[in-house]
């Protein structure tokens, strides 16, 4: 047994403390220690994007971050995207555009797309494609995902206008 380390962090706006082994990834800590299983594992080596979370507003693949690195950070996972009982515009547009089939990639796409729209409210199709190239989806062929992100961007701009 390895000595566990105490980690203090903020997850989805709430202060959160946990004990983890130094070798445990943030993905593992979120899923197995904190029960936040909305963040998915597709490869555990940084190549599928299913485990995407925000770390101090940076997009990271949580399988490549150690749990101990979360010390003092603000983490946002898919569970923290909806605003209370109201879905985030991205979540709504994913539903309206049928942008998910099996849905295993969806949390990663929504978290990554949120980070894009936070910094670029009006992205072009190419910008969306480039930004989301870290996230693999095997079911949809991406068409409906790209449309969903565009629609969410438009709706968010209307609200802000």
């Amino acid at each position: 047994m390895h000595t566990k380390v105490r980690v203090q962090t903020t997850i989805n706006g709430e202060p959160q403390e946990f004990l983890c082994e130094p070798r445990q990834s943030l993905l593992e800590c979120l899923r197995d220690l904190l029960g936040l299983t909305g963040t998915k594992e597709g490869c555990n080596d940084g190549n599928c994007g299913a485990c995407t979370v925000l770390m101090d507003d940076r997009v990271v693949t949580s399988c490549l971050v150690l749990g101990v690195e979360a010390q003092g950070c603000q983490i946002t996972t898919i569970e923290g995207i909806a605003r209370g009982s109201e879905l985030h515009p991205l979540q709504r547009s994913f539903l309206e555009n049928a942008a998910l089939q099996c849905g295993i990639c969806t949390p990663g796409f929504i978290v990554a797309a949120k980070a894009l729209l936070d910094q670029q409210p009006n992205p072009s199709e190419d910008e969306i494609r480039l930004w989301l190239a870290n996230n693999l989806c095997r079911c949809t062929g991406y068409d409906k995902i790209i449309r969903a992100v565009k629609q969410a961007a438009e709706q968010m701009q209307e609200v802000n206008a």
């Binding site: 299983t37 594992e41 996972t77 569970e79 995207i81 879905l87 539903l95 998910l100 849905g103 969806t106």
Partner: peptide, 23 residues
């Protein structure tokens, strides 16, 4: 027609439980 899928909300909020999520 094109209704919203019944399991949709659970799948865009991370609440849907896949096999590996089982505890």
């Amino acid at each position: 027609t094109r209704p919203i899928r019944h399991d949709g909300v659970d799948k865009v909020t991370g609440r849907a439980l896949y096999g590996a999520d089982f505890q």
